[in-house]
Amino acid sequence: MVKILLIEDDLEISDLLTQYLSRYQMEVISYAHPKSALASLGIESYDLVLLDLTLPDMDGLDVCKALRERSDIPIIISSARSDLGDKVIALELGADDYLPKPYEPRELVARIQSLLRRINGKTIQASSEMFRVDETGIYKEGELLPLTRAEFELLALLIKHRRQIISRDFIANNVESIQWESSERSIDVLISRIRQKIEANPKHPTLIRSIRGMGYQFTL
């Protein structure tokens, strides 16, 4: 299911979009206040942001800038502000699309699906170019990684479920080399060792993210 962060202070619009998008297997998490929405990025994992420009406490263009500074998450601006300058600035700040209000909800669905297809296509291509998994091992940019059996099984699982958040329980049940009774500690140790071998900066990992209270996500 696609998970969308909606930043919109009109509660009626928020409720309508939540109900409508659910028909298309899209879960909407909505915030009226942008600062709360930005704070949630450190806790939740989203596939896309739907952002209004007229918001309390913080202008939507500033929110767009803050989002792009923190993440490469796809952003669609949805706003009644008709100033061409706003659209140009939003796109320059890193928004991926701009949909003026009012609009037909089905058009929004089409734009979301189109944007995610493009983003996911690039992600899978980038992942396949950087990492390759076969019966001989896992290769990063053409070089065989020196992995133990447990590291291989865990990294292969993460790559297979790229961009999904997978829990420790899921890992424990799908990595044969991990003993259940010591699985939580074993997983943390394995993740740390894998990061040492694939991350540019293991102390600030970008390929394997820790999602607090949920598990891990392979980002490519």
Rank of each mutant, 00 (worst) to 15 (best):
Q217P: 00
Q164E: 10
I119K: 12
Y20N: 03
V133K: 10
Y139H: 06
A32I: 04
E27Q: 11
H33N: 15
I208P: 00
R168V: 02
S182C: 12
R212Q: 11
I112F: 11
R162P: 04
D83F: 05
P56H: 04
S167H: 00
E184W: 09
L50D: 03
L53C: 01
H204Y: 15
F218G: 06
R195K: 11
V175D: 04
S183T: 00
M214A: 15
K140H: 07
L84F: 13
N201A: 10
T206Q: 11
L158K: 06
E92H: 13
I13H: 00
S78T: 12
A66M: 13
L67E: 01
T18L: 09
R185Q: 10
A172R: 11
R185I: 06
G142A: 12
R195S: 07
L41S: 07
T54D: 08
T54V: 12
E107N: 09
D97E: 14
G42L: 11
E176F: 11
A126Y: 08
Q113H: 13
S186E: 07
S78A: 15
L99Y: 00
G213W: 02
I191Q: 04
R111D: 05
M130Y: 09
E151G: 08
Y216C: 01
K140W: 07
P34E: 02
Q179I: 10
D96E: 09
L115N: 01
E141M: 10
L145F: 05
D97S: 11
E104C: 09
L67F: 01
L48G: 04
I75M: 06
P202A: 08
I165E: 05
Q196K: 15
S182V: 13
Y103A: 02
F170V: 06
K3V: 14
L190S: 13
S30R: 07
R23S: 10
Y139N: 03
A126W: 05
V2Y: 10
Y103R: 03
T148I: 07
K140G: 04
R70C: 07
S78G: 09
D62E: 15
E104S: 10
A150V: 15
P102D: 05
R168C: 05
D169R: 14
Y31V: 12
N174P: 00
T219L: 02
L53M: 08
Q19G: 13
G121H: 07
S186M: 01
S192V: 06
A90K: 00
M26K: 14
I13C: 05
L108E: 01
L158Q: 00
Y46L: 14
T123K: 14
L145C: 04
V28D: 03
P102S: 03
L155T: 08
T148V: 01
L50H: 08
S14K: 02
I119A: 13
D15T: 11
R117T: 06
P74L: 10
L144T: 03
A200H: 12
A110N: 11
R81T: 07
A80Q: 00
F170W: 02
L84A: 14
A95N: 08
R193V: 08
L99E: 00
W180Q: 15
L91C: 09
L157S: 08
L144V: 13
P74G: 07
P146E: 15
L48E: 01
L5S: 01
P34H: 02
A156D: 09
D10P: 02
E181V: 06
G42N: 11
R185Y: 07
I29E: 13
